[in-house]
Design a protein around this nucleic acid. Structure first.
Length: 310
DNA sequence: CGGCTTTGACCCGCGC
DNA sequence: GCGCGGGTCAAAGCCG
């Protein structure tokens, strides 16, 4: 593996909370400005907020740009790596999975354009439904196999498969037959705290309850605990869209904890007031879809980088 | 009563 | 051709 170019993908989030006194109250901020100084103080605050907002926007742009660069580099490296393994200099796609189970990704994408049968057969885009895979962390005690993705599903079957002790549930979009999307949900055989949802096809309608919940999606490194077909970089590239993803419901306080665990710097405030300020800031930020998207993009980009060049 | 889930039966592709 | 296993069907049951 080639060494990674040193690209800083850290968010560099520096909230710079105002200094606090021992009793937790802000030290240098006048809570009740006099009538004379109120306009000046407000204008100053406004300027400061505008300035911080501008800085945050710039940081966001850098983060997104860095992710894009990293992603392109990862794609290039994976293609090179697979070409070496497959021994096909003209072909950039990946080996077919031998399994036909839930963890199998059977689509291949060949770029060599060769009609030689000794090379790989190219799937016909028009005849193959798009396959997207999603990882969702759920309590092991939750046996419902329900993945809340904003769409309505009708369960039409459940089977116990050979390679996984947990049953696999089959769902159709409740808009069927006009919407052809199907979904298979099964607990990961390697880490039963994760559900693996495999989506086939694309919805031809909007989410029935779109906007109710936020769903952060992006590839996440889960180490060797999960089955390799889900967590490996190759599977990331085999699916048409971001395939191996984890889901955080940012409307829940649990997600704030998740955010803090992902960005340890956010845990530095020590006093209860600072904690409260953090909670409020995190809550405000995570309500902004653009911010959450960029945040996950940055984090997952960093994770993918570590995985690829390990 | 309509919609959804459950579950056994059936279909079909694949390997031997 | 046969067996195996994944995927789907459809009747029965459940629930609001």
């Amino acid at each position: 593996m080639e060494p990674s170019p040193a690209i800083n993908t850290s968010l560099g989030l520096n909230f710079n909370p105002p200094p606090y006194t021992d009793d937790g109250s802000p030290a240098n901020i006048s809570v009740t400005p006099t009538k004379e100084e109120a306009p000046a103080v407000l204008a100053e605050k406004l300027n400061r907020i505008s300035s911080e907002n501008q800085k945050l926007n710039q940081m966001l742009g850098v983060v997104v740009e860095n992710y894009s660069v990293l992603r392109n580099q990862m794609v290039d490296l994976m293609i090179k790596s697979r070409k070496r393994k497959a021994g096909c200099d003209n072909c950039n796609f990946f080996n077919r999975s031998g399994s036909s189970g839930a963890d199998a990704l059977t689509d291949q994408y060949c770029c060599c354009g060769s009609d030689d049968d000794s090379c790989h057969k190219r799937p016909r885009e028009s005849s193959r439904p798009k396959i997207k895979r999603v990882l969702v962390q759920t309590p092991i005690s939750d046996s419902s196999l329900a993945v809340k993705d904003g769409y309505q599903w009708r369960k039409y079957g459940q089977k116990v498969t050979k390679d996984n002790p947990s049953p696999r549930a089959y769902y159709k979009c409740s808009f069927a037959p006009s919407c052809p999307v199907k979904k298979k949900v099964q607990r990961s055989v390697q880490d039963s705290s994760y559900l693996v949802a495999t989506y086939e096809g694309e919805h031809n309608h909007k989410k029935p309850n779109s906007g109710i919940e936020y769903q952060l999606v992006g590839p996440i490194h889960l180490g060797s605990k999960l089955d390799s077909s889900v967590s490996s970089p190759s599977s990331l590239l085999m699916s048409p869209s971001l395939p191996s993803v984890t889901t955080f419901d940012l409307t829940k306080s649990q997600s704030i904890d998740t955010l803090k665990s992902l960005v340890p710097e956010l845990e530095r405030p020590s006093t209860s007031t600072q904690q409260m300020v953090f909670q409020q800031m995190a809550s405000l930020l995570t309500r902004d879809p653009n911010f959450t998207k960029a945040l996950v993009t940055a984090i997952t980009g960093n994770m993918v980088e570590k995985e690829v060049w390990r």
